[in-house]
Design a protein around this nucleic acid. Structure first.
Lengths: 116, 116
DNA sequence: AGAACTGTTCTAGTATTTATAGAACAGTTG
DNA sequence: CAACTGTTCTATAAATACTAGAACAGTTCT
């Protein structure tokens, strides 16, 4: 599992880390039972603080996507499987948005607003 | 045009205001040429600062969704029409996400990450 | 048992972002 | 001219994001 982050983005680092994990789950690269890299590893490889990565992991735990225990690490739950079923729909939507030159932030905000 | 905001939300007010306008455009309630309520009106009715509303309007201007001129106000551009064409796709995606008990923030972040 | 790993919790400080407030300015409309 | 519009400016307070270091408490493997 590779976690990517864009330092120049306005999106908070912790949110980007969580988003990266979710995207891996949706793409099928992270399956139920898979273990995420340790927070200390991720922090070191990204050059960010341990607490920043842990905040992302705790967010994912709050969403039910991972189980966390000390000593054991963070492990993907069954809840990641449904994400994969959304993958095609999301890619289709993104493809259409791209042809309209709509910004990622605007599309994301639109989806979020529609979800309320 | 009615602009709604949820004070208990973690999303910044200016972002919610912009999202509300985009949602109206996507739903066809705001069409090209329509004038948005003045920033001072919106600020007064929401009980927030004028600058907060203006920041939202300027964000929409940066996205090309509205034209702004002093004295004249903010007017929706042709760019709002394509949003309406995404409406069905977004609603379908949101409907599926709802059955999966996925949080709005998580879905929005997933869409944004997929868009990169 | 012991060593090496894991997340958890705590205090602390700095930088950035958000939101507020008020005033003055400069176009547009009636 | 009067009343409206967004624009620009300075200022301040509050919340959030990020970093830093240390200690703690489970798990895994040798």
């Amino acid at each position: 599992m590779l976690i990517r982050v864009d330092p120049s983005s306005e999106t908070p680092i912790f949110a980007q880390v969580a988003a990266s994990v979710r995207a891996d789950a949706a793409a099928g690269r992270l399956r139920s039972g898979d273990r995420l890299p340790s927070a200390r590893e991720v922090a070191a490889s990204l050059g960010v603080n341990l607490h920043t990565v842990l905040r992302a992991y705790q967010l994912l735990r709050d969403e039910g996507l991972v189980d966390m225990r000390r000593g054991r690490g963070a492990v993907a739950t069954d809840a990641v499987e449904p994400l994969a079923r959304l993958h095609h729909d999301i890619e289709a939507l993104v493809a259409r948005a791209r042809t309209l030159a709509l910004s990622p932030d605007a599309l994301a905000a639109l989806v979020k607003e529609t979800y309320r």
